[in-house]
């Protein structure tokens, strides 16, 4: 009953949201459009020589490039593994936080989990290279127990990148799942038990389906930024396992081919957007069947 007139309210709301929205349009949307335009209307023919006019040449070049395909696939593969690892590892923690930890201590746990996320990304990534180095922590420990004769070579590999990124994005996965679990009406679980399901079945038939939106959010929120990670391939991969971000940077700056670099960026974004959409659509169907 306390609702207010829509017209006045809409005008005030739009006026209020205008400054941040304008900023986002100017600093994010406009540059993205310029990037798109660059990829579609410029083609580099030589040193500082460009042909203007609509062209798909950049995109054709991108798709014909085996390196692009290899790096894109590697990025997707890495991001997929990282997403799987973070979500699977995070779910029990989120479950623990939501169902076991007493309400007064939840905030403390959340705080502890989020702290590493805010602190010095660069140094954290670098420390993994220390941990995984030939004379690093892991090898020192294995050597101490006499388990290896020569240090294991772990750096400069896809596996090392996956471990590092999983660590970096771990808190991202916990929070959405936790929020989804918190929203579950506890009476539903009791109803599940009351209707004769055991704990495991109640979890599978009630808790898990209700937590799925959180899991989906967690997966997307980890997957999307991971694809575009630049630091980890550089530091952990030692430049030998580049991913798509490194390729974009290299085309844009080192090769000074902005049209092609833009085309790679746009293509990568499209691939990610399509994958995310398919993922969400599949999930929606899956959820509907469950509900």
């Amino acid at each position: 009953m306390a609702a207010r007139g829509l017209d006045r309210e809409a005008r005030q709301g739009l006026a209020l949201v205008a400054p941040p929205f304008a900023y986002v349009l100017l600093v994010m949307a406009a540059p993205l459009l310029v990037m798109l335009a660059t990829s579609l209307f410029l083609f580099k023919t030589g040193y500082r020589e460009y042909v203007e006019g609509f062209t798909l040449a950049n995109y054709l070049q991108v798709w014909a490039d085996p390196i692009f395909r290899a790096l894109m696939l590697r990025s997707l593969w890495v991001a997929g593994l990282v997403t799987l690892a973070t979500v699977v590892l995070a779910f029990p923690v989120a479950y623990f936080l939501s169902f076991v930890v007493s309400p007064q201590r939840k905030a403390l746990w959340l705080f502890l989990i989020t702290i590493p996320f805010w602190t010095s990304y660069l140094i954290r990534v670098f420390l993994w290279s220390v941990i995984l180095a030939p004379n690093g922590v892991v090898n020192s420990i294995l050597d101490f127990f006499g388990l290896i004769e020569r240090p294991l070579r772990m750096l400069n590999s896809v596996e090392a990148i996956v471990v590092t990124l999983s660590h970096a994005y771990a808190p991202f996965a916990i929070l959405p799942i936790f929020v989804a679990l918190e929203r579950i009406d506890r009476a539903l679980l009791e109803a599940g038990r009351d209707l004769g399901e055991n704990r495991v079945m109640t979890f599978l038939r009630v808790t898990l389906p209700l937590a799925m939106p959180g899991v989906v959010a967690a997966a997307l929120i980890v997957f999307i930024p991971t694809i575009g990670d630049y630091v980890t391939p550089t530091l952990i991969g030692g430049g030998r396992v580049p991913m798509i971000a490194n390729m974009i940077q290299s085309q844009m700056l080192d090769q000074d081919n902005r049209p092609l670099g833009s085309a790679i960026a746009v293509t990568a974004m499209l691939v990610v957007a399509v994958l995310a959409a398919v993922f969400m659509a599949l999930n929606r169907r899956f959820l509907k069947v469950r509900a």
């Binding site: 829509l6 309210e9 809409a10 005008r11 005030q12 709301g13 739009l14 209020l16 949201v17 941040p20 929205f21 986002v24 349009l25 600093v27 994010m28 949307a29 540059p31 993205l32 310029v34 990037m35 997307l220 929120i221 999307i224 930024p225 694809i227 575009g228 990670d229 630049y230 971000a245 974009i248 940077q249 844009m252 670099g261 833009s262 960026a265 974004m269």
Partner: peptide
């Protein structure tokens, strides 16, 4: 506090930098 047209889209756009890879933001800028 307010309901206004296209609210979901506008707020989504404002929150987008949270998931947009920074390399994209940096390069386009």
């Amino acid at each position: 506090r307010f309901r206004f047209p296209a609210k979901g889209g506008i707020m989504g756009a404002i929150m987008l930098p949270l998931v947009l890879p920074e390399i994209i933001v940096a390069m386009s800028l």
